[in-house]
């Protein structure tokens, strides 16, 4: 089971609200390479993962992604505090406001609601871990793109932290893939399906 720590993993303190930034950063809440997708991907992959060390990595990274989801929510919260309807409208947030008011609804920046299609679970060790390696890189690119469009250092600082964590997770999934490959049949290194054929 899980327990909740009443603190962010890394501080978020944004002085100036900015609906334009919120409008793009919301993609890391409910977008294709966002933190919700990341957490759900790893926490569901772990059940069919046959190796204890890799189960550990999936559990711990999946749990950390929940903490990142909370950081993104904190960034969005502070970016939208005290904004007038007029300011929301100017930033094009009126089309979000009409359905969700000031509520937190996981969507991509394009407006597409969160979709479990973002969560790759094939039930195969090699397929799933390669999915995870790609997912961490895609999340890193999304943070790079956010950093290209956001100037405020108060926003950039926690975003840079989150970007850095994607790199670390990529390294850990690299370890996980190596661990999995150590279990594979040397005659059939890539095509073997260890979770099914044993």
């Amino acid at each position: 089971m899980w327990s909740y720590d009443k603190k962010l993993q890394y501080p978020v303190k944004i002085k100036n609200p900015n609906a334009n930034y919120a409008k793009i950063i919301i993609s890391q809440l409910g977008g294709p390479d966002g933190e919700l997708a990341a957490s759900m991907r790893y926490l569901h992959q772990r059940y069919s993962m046959p190796y204890d060390k890799v189960r550990g990595i999936l559990t711990d990274v999946g749990t950390e992604e929940l903490a990142h989801l909370e950081m993104i929510a904190a960034i969005l919260y502070q970016l939208t505090q005290g904004l007038s309807a007029e300011e929301m409208k100017k930033a094009g947030m009126d089309i979000y406001f009409v359905d969700h008011t000031a509520g937190f609804y996981p969507i991509a920046a394009s407006g597409v609601p969160f979709d479990m299609k973002y969560v790759g679970v094939k039930g195969d060790v090699i397929a799933d871990l390669n999915e995870d390696l790609a997912a961490e890189q895609k999340a890193r690119v999304t943070y790079d793109n956010i950093l290209r469009m956001v100037d405020d250092p108060d926003v950039r600082d926690p975003i840079k932290y989150l970007r850095q964590r994607e790199l670390v997770h990529y390294q850990r999934f690299g370890d996980a893939l190596r661990i999995a490959q150590d279990h594979l049949d040397s005659k059939n290194f890539y095509a073997f399906n260890p979770s099914f054929d044993k």
Partner: peptide
């Protein structure tokens, strides 16, 4: 020991 099985499921 954190990674030692069995896991909760």
């Amino acid at each position: 020991q954190w990674v030692d099985g069995p896991w909760p499921w």
